[in-house]
Write a protein that binds this DNA or RNA. Structure first.
Lengths: 190, 190
DNA sequence: GCGTTTGCCTAAATGTCTTAGGCACATGCA
DNA sequence: TGCATGTGCCTAAGACATTTAGGCAAACGC
């Protein structure tokens, strides 16, 4: 009997691919076992359970996203950086919808602490250094950017903007213009 | 044998309550049957299947949300209306997390067409009449507001802003200030 | 070469989803 | 009032996912 060479890492990568193909919430231990041509119970030597698998996929996606973001931000500032970071999220979601959904997966406090979530916040903060914001407005802006990026990408992927003109690419550009304007003219606290 | 009095409507309402208690993706035909003290198979006279149940809950949530939004917008304009509408989404998500998740549920094209989704878009457009935007910028702004509202609420509910000062209420107010400013000074197309 | 560990197996329990077919109660018509 | 019909919930059963327990054999360490 030839050993399949299962490891948590290989299972996680295969799980991520599976998520992109069939959707994150259709990711199943059974299907994963099928792909490795192995019995289901065998996976339980490498994964705690089904939840563990999903968590690992989520952490993988967060890492990949953070790596791409770091890459995109290198050497850029101001609106150039804003556009680059925004496009990282949007492009990743389009290329890897299952992984993107995984990145939104509600992590337990332990997993969240060890995740790349922190890097994401730091990078958004770095981006904002190109604008003239001081605390606490910088934090507010970090949260705004996170909301817009995530919200736009979710709605676009979910088909929320599907059936209407103008096309979503134009809206995306204009939203980035608008955010840039807003960050350069952040309203003072009333 | 006393009849339980099942109807699609009662099942949908109970399903919505179940969603708020245990989360939308934990809503199960079996659990619903348990709550009505009825055998699982009995529900299949009233529901096509599990997907049908979820779709009905989603449509219910979209209706409720649209009703609240219409109510909140009545007699308001400008920033007052903006704040009111935004708070409808945020409050609904806090009061009814399961229903809110349901409202984000990916509907099939048929269900989507018959849903209250259209009313939501119309109301956002109505709100924007208080600002000076013409097409296509109005559409861009509709999409931006949808993205921010949805994105912020998801991230806040998902705990994305949990562990940091300043508190989320302050951020929420400042984001609404910022959006108001932005809509009053929408940048011209480059 | 031998013992131990590791990797994948079989077996079995539990739970969900779904369909098929049956019995009894409620309702409608004579 | 009595009967016929239909509706509402039932039992039964198959398919599939999750998870645990325990076993056998290949790989590795000495």
């Amino acid at each position: 009997m030839v050993r399949a060479g299962l490891t948590p890492e290989r299972l996680t990568r295969a799980g991520a691919e599976l998520a992109d193909e069939v959707g994150f919430d259709q990711v199943t231990v059974s299907e994963l076992a099928r792909r490795f041509d192995v019995k289901v119970a065998s996976l339980y030597s490498h994964l705690k359970n089904s939840q563990d698998l999903r968590t690992r996929i989520a952490l993988l996606a967060l890492e990949e996203l953070a790596d791409r973001a770091a890459d995109a931000l290198a050497g850029r500032a101001g609106k150039d950086a804003l556009t680059a970071l925004a496009n990282v999220y949007r492009d990743y979601a389009r290329e890897h919808p299952g992984r993107y959904a995984a990145a939104q997966f509600r992590l337990g406090p332990e997993a969240a602490a060890g995740s790349a979530g922190v890097r994401h916040a730091q990078m958004t903060r770095a981006l904002l250094r190109g604008y003239d914001l001081t605390e606490p407005d910088q934090t507010h802006a970090v949260r705004l950017l996170g909301s817009v990026f995530h919200g736009y990408v979710s709605l676009e992927m979910g088909g929320g903007f599907s059936h209407s003109a103008p096309d979503t690419q134009e809206t995306w550009s204009r939203i980035l213009d608008a955010l840039d304007t807003l960050l350069r003219n952040w309203p003072p606290t009333p």
